[in-house]
Simulated scan of single mutants.
Amino acid sequence: MRHQLSFACEGATLAASLDEAAGRTGLLIVSGGNEIRSGAHRGMAMLAARVAEAGHPVFRFDRRGIGDSEGMNGGFESSGPDINAAIAAFREAAPHVTRIIGFGNCDAASALLLHRPLALDGLIIANPWTYDGDAAEAAEPALPPAAAIRARYLARLRDPKSLLRLIKGEVDFRKLFRGLSALKATAVPAAPDSLAARLDRAITGLDTPATILLATGDRTAQAFVESCPSALSRLPVERLASPSHSFAGEDADWLYQRVLVALES
């Protein structure tokens, strides 16, 4: 059964939803960008219902200044108190819960990493946001990461239809040369105070079990792979061949299964 409730965070009242279940391991869903707790196309609300049906309680909330919550929206980098208050509210609303796994997508994933230590027993980090600035406001670069461009052109070279279009002169050569020139560019190390560098340090010092989920066709995930390569050798990584940043449609089943594995480990 789903209940609506509220809790306090630094003088503001935050709105939350609890999907009840008897399990002792619960899932805390942190919303990314300026999304309300239901998520893109209600994806997080549907995930919560399925996870609760499988026996695990799920807590979702709107951070300050978002959705039904009071206060000023300070973005994901200011959401540490919100997450900590949500954890405490979850434990109070479901006192039988002894373990809480935190899940976040995009800048919510980054928030879970940046605001450690948190009173969580595990993390599920999906498509972490590495561009400086809030995901709801910052623009992605005009070109995708070099790794993504490389994979795209290699796939096209293996495609007879693409080669035929090249021979017939149906390819935009200016766009082609622009893409190929990006492959030659030397990767510039992230500045020490950049979001990517801070996330890399956070992962290095992580003392909580965590799993990274990546949609390999998503630009945000591709940028994470390029900006934080050492993170991929430190934590388990699950990859889905999809461009869906929010694991929409059929990808929701894949996400659900990975969440269940983390909850039941």
Score class of each variant (00 low, 15 high):
86 A>L: 10
148 A>S: 14
163 L>Y: 01
73 N>C: 15
35 E>C: 03
53 E>C: 07
153 Y>M: 14
228 C>E: 10
213 L>H: 01
91 R>M: 05
134 D>L: 12
129 W>D: 11
10 E>N: 12
48 A>I: 05
41 H>K: 14
237 V>S: 08
138 A>T: 14
241 A>K: 10
215 A>D: 00
182 A>Y: 06
9 C>T: 11
123 L>F: 13
208 T>E: 08
74 G>Y: 09
203 I>N: 07
15 A>C: 09
240 L>R: 09
101 I>M: 00
122 G>D: 07
38 S>K: 03
57 P>I: 09
115 H>E: 11
256 Y>A: 04
124 I>D: 00
235 L>T: 04
49 A>M: 08
204 T>Q: 15
130 T>K: 02
10 E>F: 01
258 R>T: 02
35 E>A: 11
242 S>L: 06
110 S>W: 05
146 A>I: 08
215 A>Q: 07
45 A>N: 07
10 E>V: 05
130 T>P: 03
65 G>M: 07
216 T>G: 00
142 A>G: 13
131 Y>L: 15
247 F>N: 04
72 M>H: 14
25 T>D: 03
115 H>V: 12
73 N>M: 07
80 G>E: 09
180 L>Y: 10
212 I>L: 15
113 L>T: 08
33 G>Q: 07
64 R>M: 07
116 R>Y: 02
108 A>L: 03
174 R>W: 08
10 E>W: 02
102 G>Q: 06
98 T>G: 10
206 L>N: 06
168 K>C: 09
178 R>F: 06
101 I>E: 00
66 I>S: 05
69 S>E: 13
20 E>C: 11
239 R>C: 13
